[in-house]
């Protein structure tokens, strides 16, 4: 019963959020952000705990895997572009990942975050399924990692396009790469709406960034702590 309520609630809030985003375009109407806020408010008001929401979550995210691999379609369609900009992509990706991790850790040190809180920052830009796997290897706090990853994705989805506009990053390939590298799947979902190239590049960048991060983390951690 609670599961059915949770599913209907999530779906109707999502449809409402899409309608809202189409009508008023703003970072605050970014669908993942606004839907999450509204759903949490409803669950708290109707006394449903997160544990009770989990069965509904498992049903609704069943198609996340197939949806992620569907990104192969735009990647395939734009394959010539990937070959053309291969060097640019590798440069942008590695610079993006290294600067975002380094700046996060330096800031965390300024705020005197505990080791758990700092360690989890190393995987904040990696897509959820990979971040949790890396988290186990580095003995990180998994629920904290998931929170960092989701919030980072939301930040990218909400402000990424605006920030890139402001600093005149207007090439669709560079825009997609930037959002996919930093804001993984949640950012990619937003990039897909901006254009086919952006979506394809973001999806590919998300995958490559995940693999790249899992390779560099064992070398990075001894340098940071």
């Amino acid at each position: 019963m609670i599961t059915l309520y949770s599913i209907l609630l999530t779906m109707s809030v999502y449809y409402f959020a899409r309608f809202l985003a189409a009508k008023y375009s703003s970072p605050l109407t970014s669908p993942v952000f606004i839907s999450t806020v509204i759903i949490i408010i409803f669950l708290v008001m109707s006394n449903v705990s997160y544990d009770e929401y989990i069965p509904a979550k498992n049903i609704m995210t069943y198609l996340l895997g197939p949806a992620t691999i569907a990104l192969a379609v735009p990647i395939y369609k734009n394959r010539l572009m990937f070959a053309k900009y291969f060097v640019a992509a590798i440069m942008g990706l590695s610079i993006g990942i290294i600067t975002t991790i380094t700046s996060a850790i330096l800031l965390a040190k300024c705020f005197q975050f505990s080791k758990d809180f700092t360690l989890a920052l190393t995987v904040k830009s990696v897509t959820v399924p990979v971040a949790t796997e890396i988290g186990k290897i580095i003995h990180g706090n998994i629920s904290l990692i998931v929170a960092y990853v989701i919030i980072t994705g939301m930040i990218g989805a909400m402000f990424g396009a605006k920030l890139l506009n402001m600093f005149k990053v207007d090439h669709p390939f560079a825009r997609g790469l930037s959002i996919g590298t930093i804001a993984h799947g949640i950012g990619t979902a937003e990039a897909v709406k901006e254009g086919e190239i952006q979506g394809a590049v973001a999806g590919a960048a998300m995958g490559i960034a995940a693999v790249f991060t899992s390779f560099i983390i064992p070398y990075l951690i001894p340098l940071m702590f």
């Binding site: 942008g92 990942i97 930040i155 090439h171 959002i179 590298t181």
Partner: peptide, 29 residues
């Protein structure tokens, strides 16, 4: 507050450096 600040600032730095670097290499080419 500090939690969000760290995530927002580091995400912005990453987004800009990734985007700028990629675009610079593309333009050069």
């Amino acid at each position: 507050v500090s939690f969000l600040l760290v995530l927002i600032v580091s995400a912005f730095i990453g987004l800009l450096s990734a985007g700028k670097a990629t675009q610079a290499v593309i333009m050069k080419k």
